[in-house]
Design a protein around this nucleic acid. Structure first.
Lengths: 258, 258
DNA sequence: GGTAGACCCTGACGTTACGTAAGGGTCAAG
DNA sequence: CTTGACCCTTACGTAACGTCAGGGTCTACC
């Protein structure tokens, strides 16, 4: 076995039951790379780890908040360096959602009152709570309270609105940056060279542009995850052996130049 | 103008804005007969009345509770005789939904705690709140509290699970009953004749089977709506002049035989 | 009266997130 | 070995719209 030696791995139906999703949904998430099980048995069975279940919780949570599957994957990955902040931001969105349910309940109560008194109900009030999360309003509030420093919230706001074309473009940019770094690595170019550092800076700007304001410090924090988290590491190593560490070094060197 | 002479009628964009839906959604609801605007202007513009907005509130509420559009129309119509009961039942489902949001929030809080202590989180707790409304559990509770007399709740439970085939069958049965009654009316057969009363009984059993336990008394209550509510009346009159009243009389006669 | 912009209509293709089904392999208990 | 529950991949279909196209209507302003 691998690093999951001590853990109990679960099959799809076990996960489906625990997580209140269908086996088909899990297949779907696997097929689109959103939640790839840690292992497969010799027979090809999907085997899910505890860590997979944590990621699934994140997925279901963001799904509950009406994020598209297209957005959920990258959102989780781009902000993996600070799980606490992510959870706190998600909590706030859930509170807002609960508020909307409360508003709908109040509308029902108003309708019940109107039934008794036979007085017409205010139209605006009838439909309170049915509005979707107002991202622009949220933005204003976030700015007033926290300035522009709450990265995860900014990130959620942005990614929710991206179209499929946006995502295609985002992915192409990421691909180009990673391919460039892999090329440098295999060519024997130092991770601290101008070329590598330049690509690292491109990477930082890419995140800054598409996800959240990304300072060099934040960038470094994210790069630490690339070697610390087996999923990221595997992602990079699949492209080129040693790439995870290489990218981390390049990003660190880039930050030192600031 | 019609009976809406004193009211202000709204265009699609006005309704869309108030109700937080899209114009496209309103077109869709119109196209499938779910929410047909009271009027059309000479230019063909959809014009919505206050009563239309009330119906839209019901639609959005049931949509919020994950009922299919297929189910929403018939559900609203079959239980139109008691709007109070409908609203109260819907309120309870909303409370349950809020409870599930609360459960998810608790899961997030547990995850935050787990982050600090680095102790693994209970798997069951991770996914609390993501389950769908458990109709069978709800059924048990309804029985204990109210016996089988809470018609609307029973109705909601049943209709939520019907397939498209079920709905096709339901509609075909309704169609046959109504066509039969219309035929008797146009043939000059009394609404209190055995034939008409027999069809009225078939109607009661149809509702009893597909929607909720329907006593003769309830059936009479519903039939009162057929002449009292312009939408129902129009529906019947479109088929045969005087049919709304005819059906009501047949249903009343059927109830008197019990 | 003409213009322009906002709004309206119908028709139609496309999308997202699966649901359902088919056909066949795997696992574990009896 | 058999059986039933579970697993796999493949593939078609669906609900509830979203988006777009092409053209008509309404109203204010010049």
């Amino acid at each position: 076995m691998t690093t999951q030696t001590e853990a109990t791995l679960l099959t799809v139906s076990q996960v489906a039951k625990i997580a209140h999703v269908t086996v088909r949904a899990l297949h779907h998430y696997d097929q689109r790379g959103l939640l790839v099980p840690s292992e497969r048995s010799a027979a090809g069975y999907r085997l899910y780890s505890d860590r997979d279940l944590e990621r699934l919780q994140q997925i279901l949570l963001l799904r509950q908040l009406d994020f598209s599957l297209e957005a959920i994957g990258p959102l989780i990955d781009a902000t993996a360096y600070d799980r606490k902040q992510a959870l706190e931001a998600q909590r706030e969105l859930l509170l807002a959602q609960r508020g909307r349910t409360n508003a709908i309940i109040r509308g029902v109560d108003a309708a019940l009152s109107a039934l008794k008194g036979d007085s017409p109900m205010d139209k605006k009030k009838m439909f309170e709570g049915f509005e979707e999360m107002d991202a622009s309003k949220y933005d204003v509030e976030a700015k007033e309270k926290w300035g522009e420093t709450d990265a995860y919230k900014v990130s959620m706001r942005r990614t929710k609105a991206y179209s499929k074309d946006d995502w295609a473009r985002i992915k192409a940019e990421e691909e180009a940056i990673q391919a460039g770094l892999a090329e440098l690595l295999t060519s024997g170019v130092s991770a601290e060279s101008d070329e590598a550092v330049d690509l690292a800076e491109q990477h930082r700007q890419h995140i800054d542009r598409w996800y959240y304001p990304c300072s060099p410090e934040m960038h470094v924090g994210l790069s630490d995850m690339y070697t610390a988290d087996p999923r990221f590491e595997e992602h990079f190593e699949k492209r080129a052996k040693g790439l995870a560490s290489y990218v981390q070094t390049a990003i660190t060197a880039n930050a030192l130049q600031e």
